[in-house]
């Protein structure tokens, strides 16, 4: 397997310094080239898991291997797209996308590469704009181009379209699908939108909360383009809904308890 997540546990300390389980016994194997969605209610540890794969957060126990190598720190083999675009405001679009290429390429080559990926997200005309001159959706596309430009084997995406409106989001789904078909990256895609995960992924890993565990591992065997298979998509959606409802109820009742006790 390409990505191997083995017995990963993560604890954070709460205000009284007691350890709280955020991720518990996470085991997951992902094949090369697979598009995997990680789906779960807010606070279940999706971002934490992705951040561990990125090498930005340490596990409490357990380890992750990619292509046989254990992850200890961030690396260019894993491109990350965050919920906020995380572009550098003092750099132009072009300079942002060439940021990871500066060391290994000549300026001209870096700019050619960057332009290629900016064109893939339809932003070839905006290379000399600054991030503050772009809309949220455009910024997120630049961030995707930036992650792709360093040609990582794995693409980690943490609710990349979470902050966008429905139409923009739907357009970006199409673009992402095309990019994925062309480049065959392995993608870990965090989302809390069930329909988004069904629309995009080969496989949906459903997580539960408190502690974060893997509840279900669903293979989505619907041919693409999936718009033409509304019925199958709906079936899977209902199935997941039923599962997640219990989890969401759990979150809600905990929040009520918390509210009552304070």
């Amino acid at each position: 397997m390409f990505i191997e997540i083995n017995d990963v546990n993560k604890q954070y300390n709460d205000k009284e310094n007691r350890p709280v389980d955020v991720l518990k016994d996470i085991n997951l194997s992902v094949e090369k080239g697979q598009f995997v969605s990680i789906l779960g209610p807010s606070g279940c540890g999706k971002s934490t898991l992705l951040s561990i794969v990125a090498g930005l957060t340490k596990t409490t126990s357990g380890h992750i291997q990619i292509d046989g190598k254990t992850i200890t720190k961030p690396g260019k083999d894993r491109g990350m797209v965050f919920q906020q675009a995380a572009l550098f405001p003092w750099l132009t679009v072009m300079e942002n996308v060439t940021f990871p290429l500066k060391k290994e390429m000549k300026k001209k080559d870096a700019e050619e590469t960057a332009l290629k990926y900016l064109q893939k997200v339809q932003l070839g005309k905006y290379i000399s704009h600054y991030p503050h001159e772009l809309s949220g959706g455009m910024q997120q596309r630049v961030a995707i181009a930036r992650a792709l430009a360093m040609n990582p084997e794995t693409l980690l995406m943490d609710e990349p379209f979470g902050a966008l409106d429905e139409q923009t989001r739907s357009r970006l789904h199409g673009q992402l699908e095309t990019i994925w078909t062309e480049t065959k990256k392995t993608i870990l895609f965090v989302t809390h939108s069930i329909s988004e995960s069904i629309k995009l992924s080969d496989r949906i890993v459903v997580m539960g909360t408190k502690p974060g565990i893997i509840l279900q591992d669903i293979t989505v065997d619907i041919p693409r383009p999936r718009e033409e298979h509304k019925k199958e998509m709906l079936e899977i959606e209902e199935h997941i809904m039923k599962y997640l409802k219990k989890e969401i109820d759990k979150v809600v009742s905990e929040e009520l308890q918390y509210a009552n006790s304070h």
């Binding site: 951040s51 990350m80 995380a86 550098f88 003092w90 930036r146 360093m150």
Partner: peptide, 27 residues
């Protein structure tokens, strides 16, 4: 911290991280 994290996933560390991200971010 988001800028720093993003830069780290793009291979920036140490002095490089400081001169290309931390200092310009504090302009």
């Amino acid at each position: 911290p988001l800028y720093i994290k993003a830069a780290q996933t793009m291979g920036a560390t140490g002095i490089d991280l400081f001169t290309r991200v931390i200092f310009p971010a504090s302009i």
